[in-house]
Computed example of a mutant assay.
Amino acid sequence: MRLSILDQAPISSNQTVQEALNASMKLAQAAETLGYTRYWIAEHHDLDGLACSAPEVMLAYIGANTSKIRIGSGAVLLPHYKPYKVAEVYNMLATLFPGRIDLGIGRAPGGSAEATNALSDNFLQQIWNMPASVETLLYFLENKFPSDHEFAKVSASPIPEFSPVPWLLGTSKKSALLAAENGLPYAFGQFMSEKDGTEIIEQYLQTFRPRKQTQEPEVIVAVSTICADTDERAEEVAISTLVWAMQRRKGEGGGVPSIEEAMQYPLTDIEKESLENMKQKMLIGNPQKVYHKLKDLQDKYNADEIMIVTITHSPDDRLRSYQLISETANLSS
């Protein structure tokens, strides 16, 4: 089973932003040592508790401090940007770190309406234009436009020896169909979806149209996971993530609370029920339990790879979670 990491670059209540970003770099280094297939970092804008607004900057930093693990965006929020600039940036990264760069593409705003308006014009119109933007981006990455295309004489330089590998990320049938129509590998965000992912992925597999003759469909499923030495410790560590998610839903600012802060946070009966529902979507437990749940998830979704999202207050608890999963899955053997 291939396992990878999706990092949302969380900021804990006792951290500075710089400390949170350095923790992300150290996580990527650990991922390489532990045998994870790839490390992706997400893009968010003006959201309390999340540090990374520019994955391309972090990827340059991380690439310079690792040597072999695949690294990428999870995801570049394409409606904010011109495809040409995205292709230039990721071709540059692929030139610096040959054979290691993934370009995850998404269409979420990644922040508030105000942040969206500050970042880009006509965001909703660009959502509608997403299929055309994806097609243009792929042409730039392949450096091969139709001869009559308006950008036929434009190259997204530098042209790397090994092009960035584009992935489409999403949580809906619309995103799955867009990936299938363009012959792209698809990453389904189970951890942030309320929909039946099995139907979505099945539709992707059934409608996939290869862009190249030898191409096959490929699926990643991303899931929120907390692993610790015992079930009791995993439940304890997870309380920080769960309460933080509740705080964010209520519009309360701040970083990921400590276990003690989370336990002292007052919850209504409705909020307690909501937290229990949130837990049902997560994988929480000891290494064997989590590993078997990951295998079950892979079978359920017919996934080629599972991508793990782990948010904890303590960077040590986060690293320990990934370490235990790696050891149980024999990733580094």
Rank of each mutant, 00 (worst) to 15 (best):
E114P: 00
T37P: 00
E276Y: 07
L267D: 09
L275A: 10
D121M: 06
G104V: 03
V221F: 07
E276C: 00
L294D: 02
E216H: 12
V256S: 03
L93T: 06
A176T: 11
K153L: 13
I239F: 14
A132S: 12
A132R: 14
D48N: 12
T136N: 07
E305A: 04
A222P: 00
A234T: 02
P98G: 07
R209C: 08
I5T: 02
I308T: 03
Y61R: 15
D229R: 14
A75F: 02
T310P: 00
D304S: 11
K195G: 01
S326T: 04
G106A: 08
G253Y: 06
V237N: 00
E194S: 15
Q213S: 07
S321N: 05
R107E: 02
S193L: 06
D48P: 10
G110A: 07
A118M: 07
H80I: 02
Q323G: 00
S155R: 14
Q215K: 13
L319G: 00
G106C: 06
A51D: 06
P10E: 07
G197I: 04
R233H: 14
F145L: 00
P83I: 00
R211T: 04
V134D: 01
Y322M: 04
L294P: 00
W128M: 13
L103M: 08
A28K: 06
D48I: 02
Q126R: 15
L119K: 11
E56R: 14
S12W: 03
Y81M: 03
G183Y: 10
Q190L: 12
T37W: 08
Y265N: 05
Q190H: 15
M58C: 11
A176K: 09
T225S: 04
A176E: 07
L50M: 12
A187H: 02
Q126G: 00
E236D: 13
E43I: 08
L47C: 09
K144S: 12
Q126L: 01
S326L: 03
D46P: 00
I239D: 09
N143T: 03
T66M: 06
E236S: 14
F191P: 00
G49R: 12
Q288L: 15
S147C: 01
Q125G: 12
V221I: 11
Y139M: 13
V76I: 15
A156N: 05
D269W: 12
W128G: 10
Y301Q: 04
I220S: 02
E232H: 14
G189Y: 03
L184A: 03
V290Q: 05
V256F: 05
L50Y: 14
A23R: 02
S13W: 08
T95F: 09
N302L: 11
T241I: 01
I71M: 13
S193F: 06
F140H: 12
L34E: 11
D148L: 11
K289C: 01
S120C: 12
T225N: 02
